[in-house]
């Protein structure tokens, strides 16, 4: 690991999990692993990004993701500006492009963007000179969520010394509203890059079109997949999908695709249960599952900060040289 692991020219942005090669993804996980040891010490703030400005540009409410990025940037001593659409000029119809130009004038070294439109982060990257980190764009991707999920899997299932390692042969089952899930898209791409075997489980109405072209398998039968899963990742299902006739009722959805204690018992001994949050307890995941020792939901949150620190650090290296 010498020279420039993330050449400034190639990776100024993190828009899609597909942008990452295996080596690059492993580098992020390894960097996060080292930072985790920092996080374990009493002094947790690093001077790395001192003098740099990270803007959190959130067009959609997401307190948990924004807070996670904010904590990551602050632990690296960056100046953080939170720019939320609500109550700002964005709410008055300012375009994404004009917002980008405003950020540019503020001298943002990195823009963390959450937007309801797929591709918004991609478009933004064309209008700013700083690094763009996609914190969720519509139903497209959420790459840092996939990275923190992979980090959590490696932490819980990997060998004691995980440095340099991927997730080869780990069997991951992702369950729920895959069609509308940016978390699922990013996870499929990243986990495949890291060597995991991913299976998507959803009712046919919530399975993406052309899923056979994705680097994963697809199944409608949750119970059949449970027995051969090292990881089960439950996706949030939204009530409004019911009114659009994707399934008849929340109760029926929960019966067929929810993870309850009975289903959890089908899992192998070592298997873990993940959820990107926020959870609908009693819908896609039962309370006793969410609170069980198999659940990594709390670890995912703390790992989120560490992985985002790694991403910001690796992207912002050489920022001046690239600009």
């Amino acid at each position: 690991m010498t020279g420039s692991p993330m050449p400034a020219g190639r990776h100024r942005h993190l828009i899609s999990a597909a942008d990452l090669s295996r080596d690059e993804a492993v580098l992020i996980l390894d960097t996060a692993a080292e930072l985790a040891s920092v996080a374990g010490r009493p002094i947790r703030k690093l001077p790395t990004l001192r003098g740099m400005t990270v803007v959190n540009l959130f067009f959609e409410d997401s307190t948990r993701t924004r807070t996670s990025f904010e904590a990551a940037a602050k632990r690296l001593s960056a100046d953080v500006i939170n720019f939320s659409a609500r109550g700002s000029s964005v709410a008055k119809g300012e375009s994404l492009k004009d917002t980008a130009l405003t950020l540019e004038a503020m001298g943002a070294d990195a823009v963390v963007v959450r937007h309801s439109a797929s591709g918004a982060a991609h478009r933004l990257a064309g209008w700013v000179t700083g690094s763009v980190v996609n914190a969720g764009d519509g139903t497209h991707e959420h790459p840092t969520q996939a990275l923190l999920d992979a980090f959590t899997m490696r932490q819980r299932l990997g060998a004691p010394d995980q440095r340099g390692g991927g997730l080869d042969g780990v069997r991951v089952t992702i369950v729920g509203d895959v069609l509308h899930s940016r978390v699922a898209r990013s996870n499929v791409l990243l986990l495949a890059t890291l060597g995991a075997e991913v299976t998507l489980v959803a009712p046919p109405t919530l399975m993406p079109y052309a899923v056979e072209t994705w680097p994963c398998k697809a199944s409608y039968d949750f119970d059949a997949e449970l027995r051969k899963s090292d990881v089960v990742m439950m996706l949030r299902v939204q009530q409004e999908r019911m009114t659009a006739a994707y399934f008849p009722s929340i109760r029926e959805y929960s019966r067929r695709y929810g993870l309850d204690a009975g289903r959890m018992a089908l899992l192998p001994e070592h298997a873990i249960v993940m959820h990107p949050g926020p959870m609908n307890r009693g819908v896609e995941i039962a309370a006793e599952v969410a609170d069980s020792p198999r659940s990594t939901i709390v670890a995912q949150v703390s790992n989120g900060v560490i992985v985002r620190m790694a991403v910001l650090y690796l992207l912002l290296g050489g920022a001046a040289a690239a600009a």
Partner: peptide, 14 residues
């Protein structure tokens, strides 16, 4: 993580 030349050089592996 304590270097002061991050802007000038690509990030290094920790």
């Amino acid at each position: 993580m304590h270097r002061d030349d991050l802007r000038l050089r690509p990030a290094r592996a920790l």
